[in-house]
Design a protein around this nucleic acid. Sequence first.
DNA 1: GCCAACGTTGGC
DNA 2: GCCAACGTTGGC
Length: 162
Amino acid sequence: MVAKKEEKNYWLMKSEPDVFSIEDLEKVPAQTTHWDGVRNYQARNFMRDTMKVGDQLFFYHSNAAPSGIAGIAEIVKAGYPDFTAFDKNDVHFDPKSDKANPTWYMVDVKFVESFARVLSLEDLRGIAALQNMVLLQKGSRLSVQPVTSSEWQAVVALARKL
DNA sequence: GCCAACGTTGGC
DNA sequence: GCCAACGTTGGC
């Protein structure tokens, strides 16, 4: 019996570098962290239902100067309950999340590489192949979003040209 | 700091 | 179920 080969999925995940940057991820033990604090259902669904170990993601710096894609990380642990939702002292505490039936999920991500420099929104808007990228759509502010493989390749190609 | 766009809440 | 008010995100 031959297992069906699962396609690798690509993602983009946003973090404010003042809070947690890709440089922070590179320095942390095992270069791995849990991606806690996502409190949006669409983003939650991606982490809980679709992300799997081995998927790769663009680490996006939001509210930064400039905002943009800072590098690459990979999923090393698939969706599991976000325990910060249960911690009364955590900024991400959510009294409505029940341990028996958690509302919020997270994944673990591991550092892969930092780009030579951040690819700004302006850089990305200059690439025709990225016209339909979720990130670049007007009003789009989803903090965990899918990236197609052609978009992934176009961004990586741009990063390699730096 | 401003503000547009989006998501959530809650009165009815 | 509608929708106004409020809170959050995130570029600029």
